[in-house]
């Protein structure tokens, strides 16, 4: 399969501190990649680099044939990258339905949008809400949703956006075991149609969904491979030393 996303020796430093150094990743079209690593390893920063929130100080990022390294964040989004942030960020005063309508961003033009009513694809947005169990909350402002529901809304927003590449930063944080399983299920359903990078701490979750796992440590790529390979990897064990292996990371 062809490569969708390619990072070549990407680095970034914040005031001299190298949060990510010489990171190279190769993500195939349709792949579901897990990115793990201890706190502060630079996983969130890696996603920030990909979606243009942070400008790299070195290296190159390519999405398909497009060099997105120096593009503005909204241009990168248009090129086909969607992002879920670690801290839930939805539009609080808008209803669930309105949130989904904003996320339906096939047409981003100012003039078009000021001359069209929202709700071009009402039906499918409602199906989406049903898919994540928010159908009965469609007309509630997002600020009244529980933490778990907000996470679900975020996932629905990503589905509505329908980006080629989806970046998920700790999507199961604060979820119950049952909800985590449902998130894993959604990820599995998305694989193939979308390419996904998930940053996750929950090893159960990673084992359930991961094909290839990339492990980061101190801003660098430490290891890459299947779940079994990673669990055997010496360096990875060292990093997670004292926590009796990555299963409890």
């Amino acid at each position: 399969m062809s490569t969708l996303l390619q990072l070549q020796d990407v680095s970034v430093s914040f005031g001299g501190f190298k949060a990510v150094r010489d990171l190279s990743l190769d993500i195939k079209k349709g792949e579901l990649r897990c990115l793990i690593g201890p706190n502060g390893a630079g996983k969130t920063t890696a996603l920030d680099l990909i979606c243009g929130k942070v400008q790299p100080t070195g290296g190159q990022i390519r999405l398909g044939d497009v060099n997105v390294t120096d593009m503005e964040d909204y241009e990168i989004a248009r090129a086909g990258i969607g992002r879920k942030f670690q801290i839930p960020s939805v539009f609080k005063q808008l209803t669930v339905r309105e949130n989904l309508e904003v996320a339906d961003c096939r047409n981003t033009g100012v003039f078009w949008n000021f001359f069209h009513a929202p709700g071009g694809s009402e039906r499918s947005l409602e199906e989406l809400a049903e898919f994540v169990g928010l159908k009965d909350h469609l007309d509630e402002p997002a600020e009244y949703l529980s933490h778990g529901q907000t996470q679900w809304l975020e996932i629905a927003l990503l589905l509505a956006q329908d980006a080629d590449l989806i970046l998920l930063d700790e999507p199961t944080a604060g979820m119950t075991a049952q909800e985590t399983r449902k998130t894993a299920e959604i990820c599995l359903q998305l694989r193939g149609k979308h390419t996904i990078i998930v940053v996750e701490h929950d090893m159960g979750f990673v084992k359930e969904i991961g094909d290839v796992i990339s492990v980061m440590h101190q801003g660098q790529l430490l290891a890459e491979g299947s779940v079994a390979e990673i669990e055997k990897d010496k360096k990875v064990r060292e990093v997670y030393l004292g926590t009796s292996g990555i299963s409890h990371a």
Partner: peptide, 21 residues
């Protein structure tokens, strides 16, 4: 309009709107 909705989204969470393109 849809644009009006986008404006309100910008009011609520400006940076998030950018990541929709």
């Amino acid at each position: 309009t849809k644009g009006g909705l986008i404006l309100q989204a910008i009011r609520d969470q400006e940076s998030r709107v950018r990541y929709f393109g």
